[in-house]
Computed example of a mutant assay.
Amino acid sequence: MVAAADAQNYAQKLGITNDMVVQELGWDEDTDDDLRSSVEDIIGGELVDEDSDEVIDVVLLWWRDGDGDLVDALMDAIAPLSDEGFVWVLSPKTGQPGHVEPSEIAESAPTAGLTQTSAANLGAWTGSRLVQPKARPAKR
């Protein structure tokens, strides 16, 4: 029963609350279905994909070593993001296939105009929370 309790905590760890619009990028066979279900349970609906034209509150970016250029992926991820929105880069834990060095995320974030604020342990995955700086001019 521990796994089910952990899964319920995933959405809370990620700061996701009811009625948020959550976009999922980088889904593949290896993504954590418990984490995805936890988020869908909290938001009361399905995750939206990259084709959505909604304003996004949270992006879950599943990212593995070899997936390409993380800066480009982050630039794409923040395009539909609300001013208060944030991105979670989810990567396999150390020792797992596809593991991404934390330094790669830390170096890519500022290039994409983001700041890393926290990290979360999410089962076989780790999450890095990236936010947009507050001091930028308001969108018109």
Results as ranks from 00 to 15, higher is better:
70 L>K: 04
93 K>S: 08
135 A>D: 14
62 W>A: 05
35 L>V: 00
44 G>F: 06
20 M>G: 11
11 A>L: 07
130 L>F: 03
44 G>K: 11
78 I>C: 03
62 W>C: 06
24 E>F: 08
83 D>S: 12
83 D>N: 10
5 A>H: 11
61 L>R: 10
40 E>D: 13
30 D>I: 05
100 V>E: 03
128 S>L: 06
28 D>T: 11
5 A>Y: 12
106 A>T: 10
45 G>N: 05
106 A>M: 14
47 L>D: 13
44 G>S: 09
14 L>S: 02
86 F>M: 09
84 E>R: 12
10 Y>E: 05
54 E>P: 07
69 D>K: 09
41 D>F: 14
79 A>L: 14
82 S>G: 07
68 G>F: 01
37 S>Y: 09
139 K>T: 08
101 E>I: 15
13 K>I: 08
65 D>G: 07
78 I>S: 01
7 A>T: 02
97 P>D: 13
96 Q>F: 02
47 L>H: 11
37 S>G: 13
136 R>L: 09
137 P>T: 06
5 A>P: 06
104 E>R: 10
111 T>C: 00
100 V>N: 03
42 I>G: 07
50 E>V: 13
124 A>F: 09
79 A>N: 15
38 S>R: 04
95 G>M: 01
108 S>P: 04
46 E>K: 12
65 D>R: 03
80 P>G: 02
103 S>P: 05
120 A>W: 03
5 A>W: 13
56 I>F: 00
137 P>I: 10
12 Q>S: 13
93 K>R: 07
7 A>I: 00
64 R>E: 13
84 E>D: 14
68 G>R: 06
47 L>E: 00
8 Q>K: 14
70 L>G: 02
71 V>C: 03
83 D>M: 15
30 D>P: 10
61 L>S: 00
76 D>L: 07
48 V>D: 01
87 V>E: 05
21 V>G: 07
87 V>D: 06
14 L>C: 08
1 M>G: 14
87 V>H: 02
65 D>S: 04
111 T>E: 04
117 T>S: 06
82 S>F: 00
83 D>R: 15
120 A>H: 01
54 E>H: 02
118 S>I: 05
63 W>I: 09
64 R>L: 04
37 S>Q: 05
107 E>S: 15
48 V>Q: 00
7 A>C: 10
102 P>F: 04
49 D>I: 08
97 P>W: 01
56 I>L: 00
5 A>K: 11
25 L>D: 01
121 N>D: 13
84 E>V: 12
74 L>S: 06
9 N>K: 12
133 P>K: 04
18 N>H: 10
5 A>I: 15
11 A>Q: 04
132 Q>F: 00
61 L>Y: 14
115 T>V: 15
89 V>D: 02
84 E>S: 13
134 K>E: 14
81 L>R: 05
23 Q>C: 08
75 M>K: 10
54 E>C: 05
47 L>F: 12
57 D>R: 10
129 R>M: 07
96 Q>E: 15
80 P>Q: 15
54 E>L: 04
117 T>K: 03
4 A>V: 12
86 F>S: 01
51 D>F: 15
137 P>K: 03
27 W>Y: 13
21 V>M: 01
3 A>Q: 14
98 G>K: 01
94 T>S: 08
79 A>G: 14
19 D>Q: 14
122 L>Y: 08
71 V>Q: 05
138 A>Q: 13
77 A>Y: 01
118 S>A: 11
